[in-house]
C-alpha cells in the first residue's frame, strides 16, 4: 500500500512469506507458496481476469497522489508515540484493591492504571 497507494492482491502472498518488498516473490518461502497457487494464476490470466502486467507490477495511484500518500506514511509512522482514539474503551481501570490483612502478597497484580490515549 505504501509503495502503490492501492492494494495489490498479487503482492499479498509473496510479501507475507518473502519479506515486504517487490523482491519478496523471489524468496524461497514465497516461491513455494506461489507454486501452490500457480494453477489459479494460470486460469485467472487465461480468462483475462488477471492481467500479467498488473500481476507483476501492480496498479498505482498517479504520481502526485502516491507522493502525498508516502508523505502521510512518513509523517504518521515517524511519530514517537501512536495517537489513538478508542470509542469503546475509555477511562481508567479500577484502582487495585487493598490487600486483605493476613493474606500474603508480593504486590503481584498491582497494575498501574492505564487508559487508551483518548484525545478528548
Amino acid at each position: 500500500m505504501r509503495d502503490y497507494g492501492l492494494l495489490n492482491e498479487a503482492e499479498l502472498l509473496p510479501r507475507s512469506y518473502g519479506g515486504n518488498s517487490w523482491f519478496g516473490k523471489f524468496h524461497p518461502a514465497a516461491g513455494k507458496e506461489l507454486l501452490s497457487s500457480l494453477s489459479t494464476v494460470i486460469i485467472g490470466v487465461a480468462r483475462g481476469k488477471v492481467s500479467p502486467k498488473i500481476a507483476m507490477f501492480g496498479h498505482k495511484l498517479p504520481k502526485p497522489d502516491l507522493d502525498a500518500i508516502k508523505r502521510i506514511y512518513a509523517k504518521v509512522e515517524g511519530r514517537p508515540e501512536r495517537v489513538e482514539l478508542n470509542l469503546y474503551v475509555s477511562g481508567y481501570e479500577d484502582e487495585p484493591q487493598p490487600v486483605a490483612a493476613g493474606v500474603g502478597s508480593s504486590g503481584e497484580g498491582d497494575q498501574s492504571a492505564s487508559s487508551e490515549s483518548e484525545k478528548s
Binding site: M1, G5, L6, L7, L61, D65, I69, I72, Y73, V76, E77, R79, R82, V83, E84, L85
Partner: peptide, 15 residues
C-alpha cells in the same frame, strides 16, 4: 488510496 481493509487500522489507527 486503499481503505486499508481494516489491516492498516490494526497496525496504525492514525494512518
Amino acid at each position: 488510496a486503499c481503505c486499508g481493509a481494516g489491516v492498516i487500522a490494526e497496525h496504525n489507527q492514525e494512518l
